[in-house]
């Protein structure tokens, strides 16, 4: 496959970035998107140019590191797939692919395609945990939890914190991430004692990071590599209002 890549290059947080064009002539359709970028970087290194900086870690779709916007979609065109699990066979020979970093004020670009997502860590640290040590895992069925609740909590817990929801949202809102991190506890007995404090504290942190407000476009749900439902945003709204009025 021959490809033209239009990639955002930016030296550091304070520099102004711009797009650069690169041509690749021997891309295998079986390569993953990141392997294709590795090939590009080897080419650049041989030529003595700076390689393109991008985030990656597990390369098996579970860590959420590989943040980039491919042709206007975070993680690219494939549904419920991270960039590392996207294969070049999904693109056409001769195609031009535009690769940009995730764009949001709370996700400043550090270099090229790498953004600083520590704002997510701070939201998580504001209350995305259970304060008491619950010890080793309890005997199965010792704490009765309805199957429906357990499944739903697990759906929320599938969030890998990649930030695609923010990147896809026309408003740069982080409500899908925050609601998933709240929702995974709100449905389980372990999450109940701190339920109100948690939702208030995490929404407060989300707002103070400078994320936008949800206007229900549902682009986040479409971009989420784990297919997390906007249902959790509605649940967070409900919990937040209840907690605000009962403080």
């Amino acid at each position: 496959m021959k490809l033209t890549l239009n990639i955002w290059r930016q030296k550091d947080k304070n520099s102004k970035g711009q797009f650069e064009n690169y041509n690749l002539n021997e891309v295998s359709p079986d390569m993953s998107f990141l392997e294709m970028l590795d090939v590009l970087n080897e080419d650049l290194l041989h030529k003595g140019d700076e390689p393109v900086a991008f985030d990656h870690d597990c390369r098996e779709g579970i860590c959420g590191a590989c943040s980039m916007t491919i042709n206007g979609r975070p993680h690219g065109p494939e549904k419920q797939t991270t960039t590392c699990q996207l294969h070049m066979r999904k693109f056409n020979d001769g195609e031009t692919i535009t690769i940009e970093p995730f764009r949001a004020k709370p996700f400043p670009v550090i270099r090229d395609l790498i953004v600083d997502r520590t704002s997510f860590d701070r939201i998580q640290q504001a209350g995305g945990f259970v304060s008491v040590n619950t010890g080793s895992s309890p005997d199965s069925n010792a704490v009765p939890i309805a199957k429906v609740a357990a499944d739903k909590a697990f759906d929320a817990a599938a969030c890998i914190g990649c930030g695609a929801c923010v990147a896809a949202c026309p408003n740069g809102a982080a409500m899908l991430f925050t609601s998933a991190k709240i929702g995974q506890f709100a449905l389980l007995p372990q999450g109940q004692p701190e339920r109100k404090e948690r939702v208030i504290a995490m929404v407060k942190q989300m707002d103070s990071e400078g994320f936008g407000a949800c206007t229900n476009h549902y682009e986040c749900e479409a971009a989420c590599p784990k297919g997390i439902s906007v249902e959790f945003i509605a649940m967070m709204n409900r919990d937040f209002m209840k907690a605000s009025f009962s403080r």
């Binding site: 797009f19 916007t69 042709n71 206007g72 979609r73 065109p77 535009t98 940009e100 764009r103 949001a104 004020k105 709370p106 896809a168 026309p170 408003n171 740069g172 809102a173 400078g210 994320f211 936008g212 476009h217 682009e219 479409a222 971009a223």
Partner: peptide, 12 residues
């Protein structure tokens, strides 16, 4: 919340 926009957008 998004001072610098995307050059390509694709909505789903």
């Amino acid at each position: 919340a998004r001072p610098e926009g995307y050059s390509v957008t694709s909505y789903v």
